[in-house]
Design a protein around this nucleic acid. Sequence first.
DNA 1: TAGAGATAATTAGCCAGCTAAGCAAGTCAG
DNA 2: CTGACTTGCTTAGCTGGCTAATTATCTCTA
Lengths: 143, 143
Amino acid sequence: MNKTPVMDTVSYLLSRIAKAHRNKANALLASLDLHAGQELLLQQICKQEGVTLNELTCDMCVSAVTVTRMVERLEKNGFLKKERCMADQRSVRVYLTEKGKQAVESITEKMWEELEKETVANFSIEERILLKRLLMQVLRNLT
Amino acid sequence: MNKTPVMDTVSYLLSRIAKAHRNKANALLASLDLHAGQELLLQQICKQEGVTLNELTCDMCVSAVTVTRMVERLEKNGFLKKERCMADQRSVRVYLTEKGKQAVESITEKMWEELEKETVANFSIEERILLKRLLMQVLRNLT
DNA sequence: TAGAGATAATTAGCCAGCTAAGCAAGTCAG
DNA sequence: CTGACTTGCTTAGCTGGCTAATTATCTCTA
């Protein structure tokens, strides 16, 4: 019996697309002095000012170590500031600086909109809706 | 006018799916003593024994530096061996060892098949074909 | 044929991601 | 109130990913 070749699976297509996406995003992020991944962190903080590192860890499905170091570097570069939580001295809360807020705006307007435009170029409205529905199902399957 | 929120774009869904995929894959790869990304490299070499580093760089859309170091580590761990090309002394050709070949087999059988099964769980045949068609179009748009 | 340019690989140095191990603060049962 | 446990974060050390700069080889032209 013939197996489906790896190269012809949905999973493989998704991994190729992810890589292409990251490459596109890198170019756009570099102009903002950001590295890949940092944009998601900033967006998450923007959605919830004063979020704790632990909450960020959960929201982003990333290890606590990674969050600690990304926050450390983003603070050093002036995008956010840390503050130890009064109620629970173990926790650290993070807030965007003005520079951080502007970065999030730029990311939304330039990066995501550009990326989306390229991604679904020459798709009809119906196809876009359909694709979104199917991908949401995929995401549910995996989480 | 209302903009589409970032969280509701195809691009964002794809980035979330990519992360979920990577997390799933990591668990399966760890059992083979491999790290994320190495499986793609080994597969590529399996498809073309004696491929040069430069060709791998192109095939995988990854920088030459990354290929050099991944090959270096995989050689150290006994998955492949390097050999300087006779015809062009600049080039380096890589070949899978027996261990490397077995790893590729395991990856194909365990990792990709498992991943695919989970990814398109509870999709009808028609939906799978449709999703694949749409994703191939997305990939073309991005490359 | 000699030098300029192109090409293949490497080194140095950075960041994102991970696990394992550790520390400090909070919590809770005895 | 004290010791055990949990929780939040950090440090150490690894890998994948990148750019910039270097080295070595090849190629091609003047």
